[in-house]
Amino acid sequence: MPSRRLRLRFREAVKTLVYGSLAVTGRCLPRSAPPILTYHSIDDSGSPISRTPDEFRREMTYFHDHGFRTWTLGEFVDRLGSGNNNAERRFVITFDDGFENVWSTAYPILDELGFTATVFLVTDFVGRESGWSVNDKVTSYGLDRAPLLSWSHARQMQEGGFEFGSHTTNHPRMTDLATDELENDLSRSRQTIEDNLGTACRTFCYPFGIYNPTVRNAVRQAGYEAATTLRFGRNTSIDDVYELRRIGSARFHNWQFFRACVHGGWGRTAGN
C-alpha cells in the first residue's frame, strides 16, 4: 500500500487540479457577490489562525493585480440590501480579535494597495494581550499572549478608511451567557468602541462562530446592523445579514483554492 505521505501528496494534487479548474470556471461565470474573507493574525508563528506576512502580501497583491477593490463590511451590507453588490470587482477583508500585527504588518500592506478592512475588537482586551479561554487545553491557538492593537492604532487605521466592529468584551461563548449577561456584553462592547472612536459601531462578529437564535436576536436588538459567522460561502440579498458567511484564510494553504474563492468558482452561492 502507498505510504501515508504519498496518499497525502496525491490528495493535494487532486485538490490543486480541481480548485484550479474551479478558478478558471469562476472567471467565465457572471460576476457573483463579493467574498468576505476572514483573517486573524499576520505573523510567522505557525498558528492555525495566522498567515505569514509574505502569504498575506501575496494574497492581497493578487486581488490588486486583478483589478479588485475593497468594501468595508458596512459598505457591503449597504449594497447587499439594495441588491447592487456585484457590479464591480470587490471583496471584503475582516480581521477577528484585533491583533497588534493587523496595525503594524497588515495595515501598511493594505494602505499601499489602497485597500481597507473591518476589524472586530475584543474591547476589554484592547491595548493588552490576548488570553481569552478557548477550551481547557487551548487559549488562543498559540497566540494567547500576543499583543493586541491599541485605541490609538485603531484611530489611525480608522483615518485610513478602516471600520471597527464588536467581537464582544471578552470573547465568551455567547450561547453560555444568561440573558442579562448577553445584553450587557453587546451593549457595553458597542458603546466602548463608539466612545473611543467617535463613530457608530455597526457590525458584530460571533466569537468562535458560535451563536443560536437567541444570540442572533440579541445582536439585532442591541442595534448592530449585521453579524458575521464562520460558515463558509458567499451571501446574496435574500440572506440574513446577522448570519453572514465568510471564507476563512486557513483554507488558503492551497493557492488554487484561494484563486477559486476569489473568482467565485468555489463558495459561489450561500448553499455551498
Rank of each mutant, 00 (worst) to 15 (best):
M157C: 13
T70M: 08
S41E: 06
T139V: 11
S47Y: 13
T168N: 04
P213C: 08
C28D: 02
V138I: 09
A178Y: 12
P34G: 10
D240H: 11
T168Y: 01
E243S: 04
T269K: 03
E159V: 09
R190S: 10
R188L: 14
K137H: 13
I93T: 05
R216G: 06
K137Y: 11
A117M: 04
E12R: 11
E194V: 00
I238C: 12
T199Q: 10
F162T: 02
R5M: 11
S104I: 10
A33M: 02
P207R: 03
R90L: 15
H40V: 07
T229P: 01
D124R: 11
D144E: 13
R155C: 15
I210T: 08
A33K: 03
E159P: 14
R268K: 05
H64S: 11
L6G: 06
G26L: 08
F125N: 06
L121H: 03
T192E: 12
G26P: 01
Y242W: 09
V14P: 01
K137W: 08
T269I: 02
F125S: 06
S45W: 03
F208L: 02
L121M: 14
P147W: 08
G160K: 15
Y62T: 11
V119D: 01
E243W: 10
L80V: 00
R220I: 00
G265Y: 09
R51E: 01
Y242M: 08
Y107Q: 15
F56G: 06
A154F: 06
N254D: 13
